[in-house]
Computed example of a mutant assay.
Amino acid sequence: MDFKDYYQIMGLAPDASLAEIKRTYKKLARKYHPDVSKEPDAEVRFKEVGEAYAVLKDPEKRAAYDKYGKNWESGQSSPPPDWDSGFEYRGGQTGGQSGGQNQEDYSDFFESMFGDRFGQEFGSNQSGQQRRPNNNRGEDSHAKVTIELEDAYNGAARSITLQSPEVDQQGRVVNKQRTLKIKIPKGVKQGQKIRLSGQGSPGFNGGKAGDLYLELAFNSHAIYRVVQHDVYLDLPITPWEAALGATVKVPTPAGSVDLKIAPGTKTGQKLRLKSRGIPAKTPGDLYVVTQIVLPAADTDEAKALYKKMHDELDFNPRKALGV
């Protein structure tokens, strides 16, 4: 899946105003409309222009697209998992008519960026259900923020900076920033949402402000992987620990523990430390995945030991293959 340069598709500069975008879209839509155009690639170009317009005319989609585009690297097949972290949005609707085309005509690139993040109706609640307008109540806002795995074990207080797009007097999108202090509850999991009451959009004519929903994601960790409330760790062990058995120290986000390695343990074997995962109401588990690591044969003594094993052990790991 290739990155799509929507500005290039429409022949626009990255700082084009909203008025310029609308004028250009009308011109290109007339030029490439399949019912009237004589261009050989009219239908394809019409769809590309419609998709580009659906993004560039919307301040939130455009700001998100610009943020990703600045960090895009050739060869990427999809946006990085946390590319949209810290970006505040108020929902949106990608279905129906937008820029003259249906949602199912949008490219995989569009869907990978906007299909989930911007697929909600304005004013949706935490479960995604449509909420009826409540007099002058402000809209709810949404944002994704990243936290450390240790925050889920211990709870934490954090300052986060969110940016949201606005259209200035010249019709150009600018990002406005705000900083909030939040509390991370102990036991949160990937994708969980927390609600900050009254931190959404301001109400109208004295109406109540909307709420802000923060979707939590974990920063990549040097040694742990997280699945729901479970945590995974690849544990290097020596050949003699695997063959003879041993008790080894194992790190966990809550502190190190002693783990018994059974004789004959193989690479890829999964050992469970019950309730050592994220400490939710029902705690997760920590799974240790064994990885046998061979010592380097970088000295005469090490080479001699390997030669002795070769000579004295009747061992053929390919025996089951018939060779």
Rank of each mutant, 00 (worst) to 15 (best):
V44A: 11
V44D: 03
F46E: 05
F46P: 05
K47T: 13
E48H: 02
E48Q: 14
V49F: 01
E51N: 01
Y53K: 05
Y53S: 06
A54G: 02
A54F: 01
P59S: 04
A63L: 09
A63C: 04
A63K: 00
A64D: 00
A64L: 13
A64I: 06
D66M: 11
D66C: 05
D66V: 10
D66W: 01
K67I: 10
Y68E: 08
Y68A: 05
K70V: 13
K70L: 10
N71D: 12
N71V: 14
W72F: 12
W72L: 14
S74I: 15
G75A: 13
G75R: 13
Q76K: 10
Q76N: 07
S77N: 15
S77H: 04
S78L: 12
P79N: 07
P79Q: 09
P80G: 10
P81M: 14
D82W: 00
D82Y: 04
W83M: 15
W83D: 12
G86D: 06
F87M: 15
E88S: 01
R90Y: 01
R90Q: 07
G91Y: 02
G92F: 03
T94W: 01
T94E: 07
G95M: 07
G95V: 02
S98T: 04
G99Y: 00
G100C: 05
G100P: 01
G100L: 02
Q101F: 03
N102E: 09
E104D: 10
Y106Q: 12
S107N: 12
S107M: 08
D108V: 14
D108Y: 10
E111V: 15
S112V: 11
S112R: 12
S112E: 12
R117H: 07
F118E: 12
G119K: 13
G119A: 14
E121D: 12
G123Q: 10
S124A: 15
N125P: 04
Q126H: 02
S127R: 13
Q130W: 06
Q130G: 14
Q130E: 09
Q130P: 07
R131N: 04
R132W: 04
P133E: 07
N134H: 02
N135E: 07
N136H: 05
N136V: 07
E139T: 08
D140N: 13
D140Q: 06
H142N: 15
A143L: 04
I147A: 08
L149W: 00
D151G: 05
Y153M: 13
Y153K: 08
S159G: 02
I160L: 03
I160E: 00
T161V: 09
Q163N: 04
S164C: 03
S164N: 03
V167I: 10
D168A: 01
Q169K: 05
Q170K: 12
Q170R: 00
G171I: 10
R172Y: 02
R172S: 08
V173W: 00
V174L: 08
K176E: 15
Q177F: 06
R178G: 09
T179K: 11
I182C: 11
K183P: 08
I184F: 03
I184L: 11
P185T: 14
P185R: 15
P185L: 15
